[in-house]
Amino acid sequence: MKAILVAESRQGTLLPGSYETLAFAEKIVAEPVMFLVGSQASLPAFPGRLYLADADVAGEYNPEEHLRLLQEVVAKEAPQIIVFLHSSYGWDLAPRLAFALGAGQVSEVVDCQEGAMVVPACNSKLRRVVRSSGDVTVVTLQAGAFSLANEPGGSPQVELLESRHDGQVEFLAYEAGELGGVDLSKAEIVVSAGRGIGKPENLAMVEALAKALGGEYGASRPVVDAGWAEHTRQVGSTGQTVSPKLYVACGISGAIQHLAGMKKSEFVVAINTDRDAPIGEVADVLVVADLKQFLPALTARLSA
């Protein structure tokens, strides 16, 4: 079996998540061939064949051109599987390739078993085992689901692809997220508020607990989207990544995007009314309780 592994480059630098595609290829025992629209200056440590297109010409976001380049590689290599990350790049490009090839796509793969792929459903409360019926399959991998046992090494044998700057979609610029605010990545204790706090006024209970513990408060994406907390306090894949000694998740269900930002915490306490909430999977302690009763009681005890 042969796998095309689609690596990613952003602002001229290879994204380390690209190695997760290599770990997946090892797991399914496939011969890996890499594809990257990127730069000679930032190549993956990989001892195999790498098809490289120059991102300065093609653009880092130019789906039509990236699709054309990938199709060229697929035609040359005739792979059985094409592997993307389930990322802003992967979920954008993978279905375009699947459509062009008439191939089935399986999204956000977390595991594989007997030729089928395991994917999460319903906010990770269920697992679905999915199989592609054709000769070629396109998959996207959940961030962090596959990792290499050893440090990657070696240099690729680079085959240059000639790229053009064609395409109707015009990339204009990158825009950085809001700067400033609090650096949660250095905090030893983080207490985060999720949608379960119910209303903005209740954020004060979370702040009070953070203060009583001597930590900082953070927030999940829905709380930031609702305007209840600043973006600079957002924990998760589109916000900050934290690794405190203690993480307290208040009313956070535990969507994968949130877990990606806090799963390196040393000790996790979750407080939730939903005993089945996926946050329970990563929590050392799950307190099944109403935040409005539990948080003030805990804060009072800590302050006593």
């Binding site: 089935g104 796509q105 329970g280 990563v282 929590a283 050392d284 799950l286 307190v287």
Partner: peptide, 22 residues
């Protein structure tokens, strides 16, 4: 026709270890 099919849907394996306080 469909290009992918579902073999089964199940619950995730519980990792265990986590303590539940009720």
């Amino acid at each position: 026709s469909a290009l992918t099919t579902t073999d089964e849907t199940r619950y995730p394996e519980k990792r265990g270890g986590g303590l539940v306080l009720e």
